[in-house]
């Protein structure tokens, strides 16, 4: 606290009053910390990151692409974070998995080990969430798969998923 010397002395001698040069810093510190708190709470230090996506040319899509069917894996993004996937497009056998580490990550890992240039085809359903798409692209990045495409889902595949859900009684 600030001290003010009174200047009174016992011997009654009058002395010129010496005011202390000490200033009470406490309110200033209070203020500074208040402002720090404000700026700390309003600032956003986390920088946003960008995930690059390359879209195919529209004219390319119309041409029936000839990819080695064995080398693809088709991942249909369903509702409630489910992934329906199949390998052979000629007679698709649906399987279901999820976004956990033992789910999609293992799947991509094992597929990648058996096929060196794996191509992933992502087919989001209409009611799948944007989050799922980003997660999926991310998993593909993590598995270090270079080739992937986001493709519209076909009516046949929607039917397959509906059938699959019916037989296994998934909501």
């Amino acid at each position: 606290m600030a001290e003010i010397s009174t200047g009174d002395s016992k011997d009654g001698k009058k002395r010129s009053k010496k005011t202390s040069t000490k200033v009470d810093m406490t309110p200033m510190v209070d203020l500074a910390f208040l402002l720090i708190t404000f700026f700390m709470l309003t600032t956003n230090l986390t920088k946003k990151h960008a995930m690059a996506i390359n879209l195919p040319d529209k004219n390319d899509i119309k041409k029936e692409q000839t990819v080695d069917k064995e080398k693809t894996v088709t991942l249909i993004l369903g509702e409630n974070d489910r992934i329906y996937w199949y390998v052979d497009p000629k007679k698709p056998e649906l399987n279901v998995t999820n976004f956990s580490e033992s789910g999609i990550r293992d799947l991509l890992d094992t597929r990648k080990k058996s096929v060196d240039t794996l191509i992933t085809i992502i087919k989001p359903m209409k009611d799948s969430k944007y989050k799922n798409l980003v997660d999926m692209m991310d998993e593909i990045n993590i598995a270090d798969i270079r080739k992937s495409a986001i493709v519209d889902i076909t009516a046949d595949e929607e039917k397959l998923v509906a059938e699959y859900k019916k037989t296994f009684n998934i909501q």
Binding site: K47, K48, M51, A52, I53, L55
Partner: peptide
Amino acid sequence: HHLSFVTNLETKP
């Protein structure tokens, strides 16, 4: 044909 999705950073496993 080029776009990017804005995301928060997550540590790579």
